[in-house]
């Protein structure tokens, strides 16, 4: 069995991975297909308010008579978008900073790590708030970018540690001695060794970005136009859905986020077990 086949073998038989990917895929498909099968526009006032789920309104309506199913599937879309973009940007920045610091060492390393350590201490949400609060217009895209630009530090730190340990390995030394250009070492020796790791980091950042966006939306810094799962929850709380017992308004958005993020975490652990033989035994 070759390395790749072996990993695949374990990946396919890992229950955590199966369940995790299952959750994520389910909601991803819902996010992709949902808007086409939803009967109403998410922001239109289409029916009576306070309407529990029915054949007409699959997940009921909110206080204003907007269709919750439609809001839900559109919100899912923006959640995945934020995860993809925000998580992607954070991973990329973290990767570049950590890699550069670890590979260059010396003064560059000191400086970059100092900056990273400073940003690590400042709570991401607080930083997000102070930036987002001053933006007159906020869209999902801008939100993702801000999240991406504030969430990278711990990735940078982890990637730096990985780079350091990889750099110390023989094959890199060997390449150096034989005067191979730096970019070739990076591209052909170090990067492939880090690929699985980077992928797992991305998964975590993906989940983190979704959670961060929900928090932002909930305290009133969400998209100024459009809809998101966090906004749904914010409106639900502001308009007393809890007091009124409108469970169909408060359960779906939170449940979806929990299962998506939980699914991502499980995927991460499952992949870790597939990649890392030491964790496999069962």
């Amino acid at each position: 069995m070759s390395g790749g086949r072996e990993i695949l073998y374990f990946a396919l038989r890992n229950n955590k991975l199966r369940v995790g990917v299952g959750f994520v895929l389910f909601f991803l498909i819902l996010a992709l297909v949902g808007p086409y099968i939803a009967r109403y526009d998410p922001l239109d006032y289409v029916g009576p308010g306070y309407h529990p789920p029915s054949r007409e309104y699959w997940l009921g309506t909110n206080t204003f008579g907007q269709d919750i199913f439609s809001q839900f599937v559109h919100g899912l879309r923006s959640s995945f978008l934020v995860g993809l973009l925000g998580g992607g940007i954070a991973t990329l920045i973290g990767l570049l900073v950590g890699f550069f610091a670890g590979y260059m060492g010396g003064f560059v390393d000191e400086l970059l790590m100092m900056f990273t350590n400073i940003l690590i201490v400042i709570p991401t949400l607080a930083l997000l708030i102070i930036i987002a609060a001053y933006l007159p217009y906020r869209g999902v895209l801008i939100q993702s970018v801000i999240i991406g630009f504030t969430a990278w530090p711990w990735t940078a730190r982890a990637v730096r540690a990985q780079t350091l340990s990889l750099r110390a390995r023989e094959f890199v030394d060997l390449a150096r001695i034989s005067a191979v250009p730096t970019w070739r070492i990076i591209l052909y020796e170090i990067a492939p060794n880090m690929l699985s790791y980077v992928f797992m980091v991305f998964i975590l950042q993906f989940g983190g970005a979704i959670l961060a966006a929900v928090g932002l939306d909930f305290i009133g810094l969400g998209p100024t136009r459009g809809i998101s799962l966090g906004l749904m929850l914010q409106y639900a709380v502001l308009w007393n859905a809890v007091h009124l017992g409108m469970w169909w308004w408060i359960v779906p958005p939170g449940l979806a986020i929990t299962l998506i993020v939980g699914g991502l975490y499980l995927t991460n652990v499952g992949l870790d077990e597939a990649f890392n033989p030491r964790l496999r035994e069962k």
């Binding site: 929900v214 408060i250 449940l255």
Partner: peptide
């Protein structure tokens, strides 16, 4: 851990 704090609060 995957549950948003705010949603657990709402629940």
């Amino acid at each position: 851990t995957a549950t948003p704090y705010l949603w657990l609060g709402i629940l």
